[in-house]
C-alpha cells in the first residue's frame, strides 16, 4: 500500500507533555509533617507514529482530550515535541529554527477551527492575504501580489472586490473560506486542517468540505485532517487514524475502517454516530468515563472502559499490529484472536 518514497510527512514516536505543576515553589506541598515535591503533567500524546502519504487526506479522529489537536499543532511547529521526530519530505524539521524553517512554513499551512478568531480583526481581507505573499516572495511586484490575491479569493469563492472589508463583515462560512485562501496564498503542498468545519452550520459544512476537496484536486494537496466527526471522515478521508488518550488505536483505509472496525473503541465510536435511518439510539454502551490524561492508566489506555479487557491489557501497552483486513490495530484482544 505504501512505498517509503511517497511519504510526505513522517511522525515518529511523537510525545508531548504539558507541565501542570508550575515553578519549584508551587510543586512543594506540606503534608503529614513532611514536604513533598509533586510534579504533574498532562500526557497529551504518548508515542504516535503516523505517515502521511503524498496526495492523500489522512484523518485523525477522536474525542476531546485524545491529543489529535496536539498532533496537528506539533506537526506545524506551534508546539515543540517532548520526544520523537517530525520529518517532512525526508528532512527532519522539528528542531529547525529561524531561517532554516522558513521554506517549510511556505510548504506547510494550517486551517483553524474557529473562523471567528482566525482572522485578525484589525486587518482587511486584502491585508490578511497580501502579507504572507509579500513575506514569502519578497521579490514579487505590487501587481503580481494583487493578481495573486485576486486569484486565491476567486478560487475560494469570495468576490475580490470585497478585499477592503474586515473579517467581522463576513459570515462564518465566508470567513473560513478566507482562512483557506490565506493558507493557499503561499502555494503550500501540505495542509493541516484542525476541525475546520466543526464551528459551522450543516449547510455551510458541505460548502467548505467541497471547497477543500476542489483545492486538493486542483493543487494536488496533501491533508492532515483533524476532526471529531466520523461522518465527515467517511466522506473525506483516504485513511483514518483513531486516537484515544494520546495513542493511535486503529489506523486503516476509510472504507476498511467503516465496514469492519476492529478496535473496541472504534466500534463504540462508530455506533455512537446518530444516523438518519435510526429510530432509537443504538450505540455500544461503554462503562465509565475517559480517564484524565494526567494519570494515565497502565497497559492499554482503553482497558478501563473495554468489555474485552483482561490482565494482559491492564499491564502491557499494545502496539499497532497489521491485521489481515489491512488495518493496523493496537489491541491485545484482536491480536490474540479473542475479538
Amino acid at each position: 500500500m505504501t512505498s517509503p518514497s511517497s511519504t510526505l510527512v513522517d511522525i515518529r514516536g511523537l510525545e508531548k507533555k504539558f507541565d501542570l505543576s508550575g515553578g519549584l515553589l508551587e510543586q512543594i506541598s506540606f503534608k503529614g509533617g513532611r514536604f513533598h515535591r509533586k510534579q504533574e503533567a498532562v500526557h497529551a500524546i504518548n508515542g504516535v507514529d503516523l505517515q502521511v502519504q503524498k496526495g492523500e487526506a489522512l484523518c485523525v479522529v477522536g474525542e476531546s482530550g485524545c491529543g489529535k489537536s496536539t498532533v496537528a499543532r506539533t506537526v506545524m511547529g506551534l508546539l515543540s515535541p517532548s520526544a520523537g521526530e517530525i520529518h517532512y519530505d525526508g528532512q527532519r524539521i522539528d528542531h529547525l529554527d529561524g531561517k532554516e524553517v522558513l521554506p517549510y512554513r511556505r510548504k506547510m499551512q494550517m486551517i483553524f477551527q474557529n473562523p471567528y478568531a482566525s482572522l485578525n480583526p484589525r486587518m482587511t481581507i486584502q491585508q490578511t492575504l497580501e502579507e504572507p505573499i509579500r513575506f514569502h516572495q519578497p521579490d514579487a511586484t505590487e501587481s503580481q501580489i494583487r493578481d495573486k490575491v485576486q486569484d486565491v479569493m476567486e478560487s475560494v469563492g469570495i468576490d475580490p472586490d470585497w478585499g477592503s472589508r474586515f473579517g467581522h463583515e463576513f459570515s462564518g462560512g465566508q470567513r473560513q473560506r478566507i482562512a483557506i485562501a490565506r493558507a493557499l496564498a503561499v502555494d503550500p503542498e501540505f495542509i493541516v486542517a484542525d476541525e475546520p468545519i466543526s464551528a459551522l452550520d450543516v449547510s455551510i459544512q458541505a460548502q467548505v468540505l467541497n471547497l477543500m476537496m476542489e483545492a486538493q484536486e486542483s493543487r494536488n494537496l496533501t491533508y492532515l485532517f483533524i476532526t471529531h466527526d466520523l461522518a465527515v471522515v467517511e466522506h473525506f478521508g483516504t485513511r483514518v487514524a483513531v486516537m484515544y488518550l494520546g495513542r493511535v488505536c486503529e489506523l486503516a483505509d476509510t472504507r476498511t475502517l467503516f465496514s469492519t472496525p476492529r478496535h473496541p473503541y472504534t466500534q463504540a465510536l462508530l455506533s455512537a454516530i446518530p444516523k438518519l435511518e435510526d429510530d432509537r439510539p443504538n450505540h455500544i454502551r461503554l462503562q465509565g468515563e475517559v480517564p484524565t490524561p494526567v494519570e494515565l492508566p497502565s497497559g492499554c489506555v482503553f482497558h478501563g472502559r473495554c468489555p474485552y479487557a483482561d490482565d494482559r491489557c491492564r499491564q502491557q501497552i499494545p502496539q499497532l499490529i497489521a491485521t489481515d483486513g489491512g488495518a493496523q490495530v493496537a489491541c491485545h484482544a484482536v491480536e490474540e484472536g479473542r475479538l
Partner: peptide, 24 residues
C-alpha cells in the same frame, strides 16, 4: 431536502457533497 442531502453520510465517499449555496 438540502439540509439532509448536505450531510456527509448522504454523499458518495470522495464525491462532492450536495451544497445549498449562500448562507442564512
Amino acid at each position: 431536502q438540502g439540509l439532509i442531502n448536505a450531510l456527509p453520510q448522504m454523499g458518495e465517499p470522495g464525491e462532492r457533497l450536495f451544497q445549498i449555496p449562500g448562507s442564512m
